[in-house]
């Protein structure tokens, strides 16, 4: 696969899979306003994914649409990181993950504003404002739960511990030629700012940054957790059962 297409798919699939996981929370969040909030965050991610998938399809040049790429690829063809693909059925986990992801996307899209790929810089121009709002939302919740009751503190810490082994994979180096040509933002260069941002929130929330070994990644090369397959089965079922259906 072309490195440029693969890079764009990585950004797109992180957003698409996050949108799908966020959708799970609709009707299940602790309060009605949170149902709406998580639905809106998912919708922003879906919108970003759509623009990125259209772009990947155009770069690929085989006539694949955003729907073809979302519904007709198998897990090995996805390029998302493991952080986003696992279930997040615990609210603390959902907020810990949103904090990590939005801190990363915030730096990523800020860097991509200067991308030599005009579509990527265009997507970044919109996305950077949206993910800043997601980051702010996660920040509020992590502090509220972390610096809350002993019960909420313990559960928020456990959630952070559970997500932390998946942080390093976000900084997997991108194709050097793509970085040199100014298309891609160098993921390794984002690391310091992302971790700083998270550390400040974690400290404010009276939580402790976990010291755990990173998990083996591989999502950017198409090696995924078992859970991505279940997510895709649900997400792709309708489109595959009724090809070409419209509603």
């Amino acid at each position: 696969m072309d490195a440029h297409v693969e890079y764009v798919l990585g950004l797109a699939d992180d957003a698409l899979v996050t949108a799908q996981r966020m959708g799970w929370w609709i009707s299940r969040a602790p309060e009605l306003e949170e149902d709406v909030a998580l639905a809106n965050i998912g919708l922003d991610q879906l919108g970003q994914a759509r623009s990125l998938l259209q772009h990947a399809g155009a770069l690929e040049g085989d006539g694949r649409t955003e729907d073809d790429l979302a519904y007709w690829r198998d897990d090995r063809d996805f390029r998302c990181v493991h952080l986003v693909e696992r279930p997040q059925t615990d609210f603390g986990v959902a907020m810990a993950r949103l904090l990590i992801l939005s801190a990363y996307q915030n730096e990523l899209y800020a860097a991509l504003l200067g991308s030599t790929d005009g579509v990527l810089s265009g997507v970044a121009g919109k996305a950077v404002k949206e993910v800043a709002y997601h980051l702010d939302h996660a920040h509020h919740w992590v502090v509220r739960l972390g610096d809350g009751t002993p019960e909420s503190h313990a559960r928020m810490q456990a959630a952070l511990d559970a997500e932390w082994p998946f942080v390093e994979e976000l900084f997997t180096p991108a194709d050097p030629a793509l970085v040199a040509s100014g298309v891609a933002a160098d993921p390794t260069a984002l690391r310091g700012a992302v971790l700083d941002r998270i550390a400040k929130v974690v400290a404010e929330a009276t939580l402790t940054l976990p010291e755990v070994a990173p998990r083996l990644g591989g999502g950017r090369e198409g090696r995924h957790t078992e859970q991505l397959g279940y997510l895709l089965a649900e997400m792709q079922h309708l489109a595959r059962s009724h090809p070409g259906a419209r509603w």
Binding site: L43, D44, Q45, L46, G47, Q48, R50, S51, V123, K126, A127, E130
Partner: peptide
């Protein structure tokens, strides 16, 4: 132009 990326 959309207001938000995912504006339905």
């Amino acid at each position: 132009t959309p207001t938000y990326s995912g504006c339905p």
